[in-house]
Design a protein around this nucleic acid. Structure first.
Lengths: 77, 77
DNA sequence: AGCAATGTTATCATGTATGATAACCAACAA
DNA sequence: TTGTTGGTTATCATACATGATAACATTGCT
């Protein structure tokens, strides 16, 4: 259980969202729409350029039809 | 996979943190110290009176020595 | 060539999370 | 009584997430 820094944490989560989104064949636009926000904000999230709140991540998990814990199921975290 | 409202989401997460904290025999003070913040902020979090960022939740998971996905492993979410 | 789709960055206003301090309550021990 | 521990709430300043718009680059299609 090694602690990683904030930047790495955020990029890992962003990459995880991107992976799951692409697996479902959705564009950033599509996923953003399902979450009721703009594609620009999805781009920012996936790039790890923001520190999302749990409600934002929950909206994404719902749009991806997975559990919140699955969205954040990243080996290193 | 039913969508719940924000307030319920936050109280469920707060309760989850409290449960895990008490299971480890830690006071709010103890856990807050491990996370490098004040006990008042831990109280606020557990009460669901704030919408935590993922970095805050990550700090807590590290302090509790569990994975982030385990911290958020709540049936309904 | 134009055009639509996809994704990115910059920027802004507004709301709110965080970090901190102080005041308070309850339970309990000295 | 006094002091300690555990927890709560109110409040404040500062930083930043969110929601939104605009501008831009690519790619691929017609």
């Amino acid at each position: 259980m090694t602690t990683i820094n904030k930047e790495l944490l955020l990029t890992k989560i962003g990459s995880r969202i991107r992976l799951l989104r692409e697996t479902k064949g959705l564009s950033q636009q599509d996923l953003a729409a399902l979450c009721n926000f703009e594609k620009t904000n999805m781009s920012r999230l996936e790039a790890g350029r923001t520190n999302p709140t749990i409600t934002t991540l929950y909206k994404i998990s719902q749009a991806l039809e997975i559990k919140l814990s699955e969205l954040l199921n990243i080996d290193e975290l």
